[in-house]
Write a protein that binds this DNA or RNA. Structure first.
Lengths: 193, 193
DNA sequence: GCATTTTCTTGCCATTTGGCAAGCCGCGCC
DNA sequence: GGCGCGGCTTGCCAAATGGCAAGAAAATGC
């Protein structure tokens, strides 16, 4: 695995030169996670800021009744980490697990902060990652409130069809805010009366 | 209006001395918004990073059917701005409106960036604001998926009872992800059969 | 102070979604 | 090849929520 996708990603998020990107990438170390293994477990402090090079992951939490609820899916080309735990150095409420074998590039909180300190252009990158995630979450929230379950499923299908290939239906359902039963019916098609 | 609450807020969010806080506060200018007036309108680029000193505000968007949906409430002591528009310099999808007469301290994007550049300690503050908002949104999202409407209403009632004093029920209902009719029934109490 | 407009409640009924349980299918394992 | 198990579907019915409309109550404007 080369650092090509990683440096490309840095450059795609803002005004960073190829040389700078390679310099920054030096601090990232390779990380492999086997299917079903965890990048983060609840109770631990997240210390991986991971660029996912290949594979799929999901984040989930348990609600008060013990049901697991998917809070996010991650495809390659994204940064995977639990924001609050990582930046506030507090125990995570969530788990992050590999849906398939995964490979990526990781950096610790301390090292990332050192980079932010040393490289002003990279700070911009860090902020963009946060802002992008925040905005995506807002838009998911709005959809959850304004769109019916079937429309939310269609959107996901268009945005990331690959997810459906790798995550069991139950997992996708809780991400959409419905039960696996309902999702199964939605997939069947328009409720023929 | 003095800058006391503003400097207190800086200090409460991280390791910033009183002297530093006052220095930073110099760049913030007072802003008054009359009840029903807008801090931000859809289509405009947000250029106010506002510390709300007194009053209540709400953010909302229109869904595809033209219904307005409350995306957030803000009480005094919070930073009010639209993350994506402000940092990406893109037109806002949302409106931010005063529910009551409001007073606060505002800074432009350019000035804020200058502060982040000049003051490392303040960068930490900026990140905390983002992370806090992000985490709050995640937790709202989880509640929306896992908790029934009545429980979400109860939580809001405990967390910010003042909001109910200033926002019409319809506004609160869309924030909770339900209709005003349902919220009215929920408030009536346990559905006595 | 009165008229107008908004906000809130409520009844009636439709729609959406959930809960449960049975059955089916596919796949790995011995 | 047969067994077991997780994952998906489906029927039946219950619960939660919505849509509409009428009327009461409260706020607003002049």
């Amino acid at each position: 695995m080369t650092k090509e996708k990683l440096t490309q990603f840095f450059q795609s998020m803002g005004p960073i030169s190829a040389a700078q990107a390679e310099d920054i990438a030096i601090a990232f170390v390779p990380k492999t996670i086997a299917k079903h293994d965890f990048l983060l477990r609840a109770g631990k402090v997240s210390d991986d800021y991971l660029f996912l090079d290949s594979g799929f992951m999901r984040a989930f939490a348990y609600d008060t009744d013990g049901n697991d609820v998917t809070t996010g899916f991650y495809a390659s080309g994204q940064i995977v980490f639990e924001v609050a735990s990582f930046f506030n150095r507090t125990p995570s409420q969530e788990y992050i697990q590999a849906l398939t074998d995964c490979q990526g590039w990781s950096i610790t909180h301390q090292q990332l902060n050192a980079l932010f300190h040393a490289r002003p252009e990279f700070r911009e990158f860090g902020r963009s990652v946060l802002v992008r995630g925040y905005a995506a979450l807002k838009s998911r929230m709005l959809a959850l409130i304004t769109e019916p379950a079937a429309a939310r499923y269609e959107s996901l299908l268009h945005a990331s069809p690959e997810i459906l290939q790798h995550a069991p239906l139950k997992t996708v359902a809780s991400y959409l805010g419905i039960t696996d039963t309902s999702l199964s019916r939605i997939r069947k098609g328009p409720t023929a009366k």
